[in-house]
Every structure is written in C-alpha cells, then in structure tokens.
Write a protein that binds this DNA or RNA. Structure first.
Lengths: 348, 348
DNA sequence: TATTAGCACTCAATTAAAGAGAGTGCTAAC
DNA sequence: GTTAGCACTCTCTTTAATTGAGTGCTAATA
C-alpha cells in the first residue's frame, strides 16, 4: 500500500486530533475540523485502508480510530514538522541558563526542570561518566585518627569524595605525601588509562611509607572506580499525572517504581540514544514491558563534541512528538553550550 | 464528658479497625471482632457519646464511624502503645547501616529508604545545616585561566564545592597561598563565629597578594554562606499511592507538587519538630491546606547530642500511628548512632 | 472510477430504577 | 445499665433502557 498524500493528511489529522483530545477520532470529526474537502464517507474508506496497513486502530467497533505505534512511527519519520519555541519560551530558557551556578550539577538540574516545564512530561537527564575524564586534583584530608576524606576533582569540574579508613599511625603529613604522589602520577590521566603499570609505579613510589601502601592501592582501585557511575536527574515526574492515560493509579505506580531503578533508566537511555540528533522511541520500541504505553524522546549532549550524557522526556505514547523533538533538541543544544561556557569560562 | 475505660476501648477498636480497613466501623463489627463483652446496642450508645464529644464522626447517616482528628489525637496522646519491630525488621535495618558508605549523604539516603519501606509511607529526611559546624579544610583548585573550584570540607565530613571566577593573572601557586591562609584562619571555626574581624584579618594577611584580595573576601562571604542550606531527601514517595485515600489522582498531584517545594517541607519539619522524642502532627495540625488529609510523624536526630536534622514519614491521617512512632523513633536513634560511628570512626 | 449520501448495525457510555446491605436511633423489655 | 427488636436512612451494586458516536456496506451520483 502506498501512502498517497491524502492518506498522509488523514493520518496526520488523526494523530493531531488524538494528541489534542486523547479521544478516538471519527471520520465526521476529521471532515469537520480539518478542511480536507472530502466527505466523511471518503475518509472512512481511507481509514479502512490505513487500518489494514496498521497505521491506525480501533479500540472497539463503534469507536473512532487512534494511531498505532506504527502510525506514530510513520508520523515521526515522514510527516511531522518541527515547530519553533515561542519567544517567551526561549527567553525563559535563556534566563535560566544565565543564572550563576556553582557546579555542573546545577546546570543539569535546571535542564531537567525546564524540560519538564516545557513538555509537561517527566524529564530525565543522564550524566554519563565515561572513564575518559582526566584527574585534576586529588586530596586527602584527615578527619579522625582512623578516617580520612578522599577528594577527587575531575577535569570536567565534578567533585567526588568518600571516606576511607586509615591506620591510626598515619598523620596528615603522611596523607599530604600520598596526595602529592597521587597528584603527580594521576593528574591529567584518565581512569581508563590507569593500568596496572601505573599502579605499580605508585606502589614503588610509596614504598618508603610502607605501612600506608596497602591503603593507597586500595584507594585507587576500589575507591575511585565505583564512585564514578552514571548519575540520573529526574524532573517533574508528577507531570505525567496530568495525562489522562495516567489517571489510573496502578499505571502510575508501575512507571514510578520503574523510574526509581536508576540502573534501568540509565540503560534505556544509553542504549537508545544515537550520538547525534534526536532519537524517538515509541511504546514497545523501548524494550521494557512496564513502559509499553510510554514513549521517550531523547538526545545526547556534548562538550566540545564529546558526548557527556543524554537528556530526554518520558510521556504517554500519545505525546506531541513534534513539540517534544523541538524542545529536546533545543534543550540539548543549550545544555551543551551552557556546559562549555561553564567549564571554559570564556567571557561570553 | 469523662472517658471511662469502656469508651476508650471502643475508640481504640474504631481506630484500629479503621486503620486496617479504611472503612467506617459499625457497632456490629466492633462487637464481633473485638470481644468487649457488650452488645452492639450498648456500643451504639457509647458511640453516640463519643461522637458528641467529637472523637469520632459519621460520613453519613447510615454509615459506621470514623475517627476524627481529635480522636486520633486522643489516641496518640493517651491510648496507643508502642510496638516493637520484629527481629527481621531490626536485622534489615542493622544490615543496611553496616554497609560501607562513602559519605553522610548515603547514610541519610539509606535512612529514607528504610523508613519508606518499613512504613509504606513517604519518608522525608531533613539535614539541617546549622552554622555551627566548623571548617576542616579549604582548597582552591584552578580549572581554567578564569575559573577555580573552591572546595570546603566541614567537620561533619560534608563537602561543598563551587566554581568561582578568578582573574587571569592568578596562578595555582597564588591559589595555594590563599588556601593556606584561609585554612590557617578558618580551620576549626564555625560559620557563625566568622565575624567581620576575622575577615579583616584575612584581608591584611592577603594584602601582599593585593589583586586577589577582593576575590578571597567575596569568596568567604558570598560563596560559602549560601552554599550551606538545608537539604531534603525524599524516599518512597510513591508509597502513598498504595493508600486508598490517594487513589484519586488529584490529591496525589497536590501533595506531590507540594513535596517538590523543598523550602516548604523544610519549614514544616523544622517548625513542627520538638528537639527530643517523636512528634506527631495530625491533619490540620500541619498548618497547610494541601496537607489537610495527611499526618506526619517525625523526630530529630543528633550527633553527640547536637541536633543535626529531622526524619519523618508522611501519610494519610488514617495511618498506624503506633507503628509510625515506633519506626520513626527506632530509625532516628539508629541514624544518630550510624552518623556518630561514621564521623568518629570508633571501631565498633 | 472515485466520491458521497443513506441506512442498518454495533457497542460504549449514560441514565434510571430497583434492590440489597450495612448501620443507626429509638423503644420497650430484661 | 444493658440489650433485643424494629423501622428508617442512605450508599452501593446491579440491572435494564436509552442515547449517541461511529462504522461498513450499498446504491446513487459526478
């Protein structure tokens, strides 16, 4: 079956109307609201064809049609046209990003909030921690006789810290020595590039302080590695409560409990996200049963061309894809810019 | 009206049954389930009295009775008896707190999760940042020619960091100097104790590095202060979806949007929380319209006797107060202990 | 041949009515 | 003071009837 222009128009009408009203769309409605210059009867014939091809479906015999996942897919791939954000909206975004921030986390958080606000969907921002960020600074601060705080600053200005146990005989002076050695050896190197060789090197360097040796090694291998994992920011999750498809509390529950499993969300996003451009995953395309009735629109943000993570929105399959794609694209670019500006610190 | 023992027993029966079933309780039910040795008719008479006094109320003429807020209050104040946690539950808590953690944040997060899990309510943990924690270590790390990362470690092992702008001519060496001076002057002092005198002192000390002077001052007054604000951890918020009173999506929405306003939650908790013991706020006692139908049970946790914040659970007015109080109390104590152990690092 | 009007048919959603059930308050007996 | 009995109230459930939106098919029309 070939999709002539009229079929396309009807499919679009159905999708637009369904997105707007959340009600199945009948032939009469289309004839009335969308002036295609044809009668309901003709539309019915076309709709029968569209249904046969699987682009639309009928909840029950005497109801109108709703788009199928395949219909949405066709719409997203061939029919929909991007809109622009209004000036007000652009202004809103601009102002938010202009605020002084104290760290990358804040910028990401703002992004999530804006996304949620602009789309009325749940927003997810995934900050991927690739092993390819270099160490900038390492510092050990003694807290008690048996504990010290290990602070690691990465090149992307993220700060990680964790408490580690030390033997009682270690003084802040010793810790400073270790810090110095670690700094000298690790500065500018990435997590990935730290191989056994390097650890050995440190091993010998610290051999003089033999008793603190074990600790230092454990520190690098144990403490740093697991610390660096993907981070997830959620925004406006309860926005989905505004969608009629989530007036059923059960559905909300399954979705929310799913969103709480960070690992899962992380997988879905990093799996499904192409490096460039906006990716749309419709219903079952997200291979996860509990998300059957959801779609995601997402994109990867970068700093100087290197992917840093992804941003996305999560909503019912019946979402305004055109707008979502526009917003996600816009926010991705803005986030990338904001991050670059923040990390670089170039005047403007 | 005096509450004789039988009236009390009936009130308790009503409350217990209503908590368990969420249905209005009739005289017949009480006679059947709770063997008080009196007939439904007698119970009806007593209930009429209880209603007149305002301890219970009737949704409509031919329904059973439900406890009023006043009834709950009486129950909480005079009738309810604490239960113990089961061994399994205690074990669960113990294991969670035994896990190695890398910071205070994690301990607090665990607490929230456990609370939510044990109570099936939304859990809130508020970490108050009093100005009375002392500085432990301050470090400036240059990131770009125009930006440096200010890292502050407090005595309670929390780490704050923020990016600050620096003039181009400043080197890491200068930053180290500033760090050293700041450390010498601020170490061991609390935010509160830093008065203008101290700032002046630093001013003179740094006079030699005159150009970086402004920055250093701005840093202490601007950067540090606003950084230190209360932090809120939410856990298992979607637990409230399990409660029949929240099967109405509208109610969920108002409550959730309220929980998103951190400031508000922070106020409610710090206002309502006595320093010692468990505080119960029933329905309208939380002076906040959107929380009319909720109750909170909360307590303050401490480190070495000094209040550090509060933990609480939020659920429908029809909650199992006895259990909530038990759990909140138990968790508060465990949190306090876990924090002390973590900060001190004493062997066991 | 493509379009359209007309019509019978289907099925969810709404409305109305009937009944069941839980619970009360009152009265009178114990 | 307690309790059995009974009439009464009001919600909730069930059932039936009605409405209405929408379709598919057929035959007429351009």
């Amino acid at each position: 079956m070939k999709m002539d222009s009229r079929k396309q128009q009807i499919l679009m009408a159905i999708i637009h109307d369904y997105i707007a009203t959340a009600e199945p769309v009948g032939s009469r409605t289309i004839a009335r609201k969308y002036s295609l210059g044809i009668s309901p009867a003709t539309i019915r014939n076309e709709m029968a064809d569209l249904e046969e091809t699987g682009y639309i479906e009928q909840p029950h015999t005497s109801a109108g049609r709703i788009p199928s996942e395949r219909g949405y897919r066709y719409y997203v791939d061939y029919l929909m046209q991007r809109e622009e954000l209004t000036n007000d909206e652009q202004e809103l975004v601009r102002q938010r990003y202009e605020a002084k921030v104290k760290g990358v986390g804040e910028i990401i958080q703002y992004t999530g909030q804006l996304l949620a606000q602009l789309t009325n969907c749940a927003a997810v921002v995934l900050s991927t921690q690739t092993g390819n960020t270099a160490f900038r600074h390492i510092q050990l601060v003694q807290m008690t006789t048996e504990k010290a705080l290990l602070i690691v600053v990465m090149d992307n200005s993220t700060v990680h810290h964790r408490m580690i146990e030390i033997s009682e005989s270690i003084t802040q002076g010793d810790l400073d020595t270790i810090s110095t050695v670690l700094n000298a050896k690790l500065q500018g190197r990435t997590m990935e590039s730290i191989k056994m060789t390097l650890l050995k090197e440190i091993y010998f360097e610290l051999a003089k302080h033999d008793q603190i040796l074990n600790m230092a090694l454990e520190l690098v291998s144990d403490s740093l590695a697991p610390d660096i994992k993907d981070k997830i920011y959620l925004g406006g999750v309860f926005n989905i409560l505004n969608q009629p498809e989530f007036h059923n509390v059960e559905k909300v529950k399954t979705l929310l409990s799913l969103l709480e499993q960070e690992k899962l969300v992380s997988n879905i996003m990093s799996d499904g996200c192409r490096v460039s451009g906006v990716t749309v995953r419709i219903g079952g395309e997200i291979s996860h049963d509990q998300m059957r009735e959801c779609s995601m629109v997402m994109a990867t943000y970068t700093v100087d061309g290197r992917p840093q993570g992804s941003v996305g929105v999560l909503g019912p399959t019946r979402m305004d894809y055109a707008r979502m794609v526009t917003v996600v694209d816009y926010m991705t670019k803005n986030l990338s810019l904001a991050l670059e500006r923040f990390l670089r610190g170039c005047g403007k």
